[in-house]
Design a protein around this nucleic acid. Structure first.
Lengths: 337, 337
DNA sequence: AATACATTTGCAAGCGTATGCAATATTTAT
DNA sequence: ATAAATATTGCATACGCTTGCAAATGTATT
């Protein structure tokens, strides 16, 4: 087995030019004549040469890698986002170094250090919260970071989310206007800003209407916990409608309602979710939900990150993308009357 | 904004030792005295030094990055596999550079070149097939590659799959033994070895029993196409049982059967899938399916790849992991009486 | 105490590329 | 045709680290 490591120097020799010439041919915008360009390209092709990204990163200080931290891919929302992020970044000549992090801070700390070791040009943290210490660590490592689908008070950190407060409000308005009175909430992981904002918006409208939460349980973004939350919520004095903090849990809630408790959706109870993941539109669920416009969120995320990479002075941005309420069949449109 | 790039040289100066000493402290197994180790560690800590992985990769020729190519993450099987792969690799000190590839060969070619540019130590190709040209390209770039959930005739390429032929057989036996006579198949993408093997095993047992496929349609691993396949398959002379090439499509098939065609599962028709993704056990589906033991497959994949990285002479391996048939409620156990 | 042997250390040479600078070639203006 | 401006080229260095080698230090043996 003879391994085939072609360097720019070898190409240079074959093409009869200097190594720098070869380098320039492969550096967009560098000054090279057409003649040497063709000579070099030809030599490169015949040898199968391609520039070594690592060496490139070494000298230029830019690795063109973006570290992406994700906590878990079980919730369909994240694979979809990841796929789009990767594609979008690939289009711009960046590549994704992926890291799975536990939810605890310790694990995130370690992961961020490992990411930094690889000299990534930027970091996207999806579904994870950052300690302020960490974000500072990245800042003076000169590595910009943006939060995806998670907000943070920390003023100099960019964050892209949907407008979760507004989304929560939309759901409350809809539920009220369709005649529901006993309205409950199944919460996600309380550490998540998305969870808090959705709940806050939701409750604020309830209160405006003179209502308060009929009951509340915590599903923690975990299927089994959501099932348990559902059981205990419907044990006695069940609500007429439940807002579940995300679709992922909402599926478990619907299944429990239907197949364990024997309830009809939406006749006996309305269920509303949040995210609009693919399965929400599957006939088995037809979940009424607020859509998080993944493609827009991804595009914004990438844009802001790259802007920050190219111009470190760029101001941090907090972006909230508005998402529509998607009416399907899991919630009654006109209650009783 | 003052950026904080600490090098081993700075640590060396502070600790009063040579730069090589610092390097050795951070190289497991290198020869350093306890005294210098502590001096260096202390200095490193106070400066916040961590070795630069890129520089390390440059000189050592090992980037400790593994390129993972995935075609799409919509099928739940892949996010789950990806998560586990990443974790498993992280444990062994490797990191995942992820690439999304279209299904067409051209796109894969490009992607592989880009991966190679990053000097990855190995490549895992999940849900993608390789042209033999490509695998040769990787071989003389000295970068080992292993196929995950896809097999290839190419003799010197390692591949890990479940035993798809056997799995197909199990399903056929089960369907026959539970009394089904009219048995149909909804195929995945015909280019996939998984699809072909599952079908081959399935049909072989049918034939052994003197049966042949009642009907066959192609879903192509795509939801909408699977729905369409279902509609046309049940238009007239519908089967008593359908084996759908993977769970992902099976959900769409079940939904179409139930909500468009008004059929009862399993009373009117039995459905069997393949993969055992999380949603297969959700009460809405309770899909009878063959489990692909992801954790075992991932462990094998990583093991084989790393073996090949550490010892390039290692022989390529084709591994088939056996997976059990999981009996749930989507297929009748005793047909008729 | 002197020798042999093992451990630790620093020196210096790369790894493959990009890039500032000075030298050379080419084009344009006069 | 000549000078002036411009475009292209090669040289040499640097990026931050690992590692072979030889020098220096430490330990064990006689």
């Amino acid at each position: 087995m003879k391994i085939n490591k072609i360097t720019s120097a070898q190409v240079a020799k074959l093409a009869g030019v200097s190594q720098s010439a070869v380098s320039r041919v492969f550096t967009p915008g560098a000054s090279v004549s057409l003649k040497t360009t063709t000579k070099v390209k030809e030599a490169a092709l015949s040898l199968g040469y391609r520039p070594n990204s690592i060496a490139r990163a070494m000298v230029s200080g830019k690795s063109r890698m973006i570290g992406v931290v994700v906590a878990y891919l079980e919730n369909q929302f994240y694979p979809e986002a990841l796929e789009r992020l990767s594609n979008c970044l690939q289009e711009k000549g960046y590549h994704v170094l992926i890291f799975m992090a536990g939810k605890d801070m310790q694990s995130i700390d370690n992961v961020i250090e490992e990411i930094l070791d690889y000299q990534v040009d930027g970091i996207i943290a999806a579904s994870v919260s950052m300690s302020s210490g960490l974000s500072e660590r990245c800042r003076n490592a000169g590595v910009p970071m943006v939060l995806f689908n998670r907000a943070q008070d920390e003023p100099n950190m960019s964050a892209i989310t949907s407008d979760n407060i507004e989304g929560g409000k939309k759901i409350a308005k809809f539920l009220i206007s369709s005649g529901h009175k006993k309205i409950s909430y199944i919460a996600g992981w309380e550490g998540a800003s998305t969870q808090r904002d959705r709940e806050a918006g939701f409750i604020s409208i309830l209160n405006d209407a003179g209502l308060s939460l009929h009951s509340r349980k915590v599903g923690n973004f975990v299927l089994e916990e959501s099932r348990e939350a559902t059981r205990s919520m419907f044990l006695n004095n069940p609500p007429e409608a439940v807002f579940v903090a995300n679709d992922h849990m909402a599926f478990a809630v619907m299944d429990t309602l239907r197949y364990e408790l024997g309830l009809k959706i939406p006749d006996d109870v309305s269920v509303v979710g949040y995210d609009d993941v693919p399965a929400a539109s599957w006939p088995s669920y037809l979940l009424t939900t607020v859509q998080q416009p993944v493609n827009i969120m991804v595009r914004e995320t990438v844009e802001i990150l790259i802007e920050k990479i190219e111009n470190p002075e760029a101001r941090p941005q907090k972006i909230k993308v508005d998402g529509p309420l998607i009416l399907r069949k899991s919630a009654k449109i006109h209650k009783g009357n």
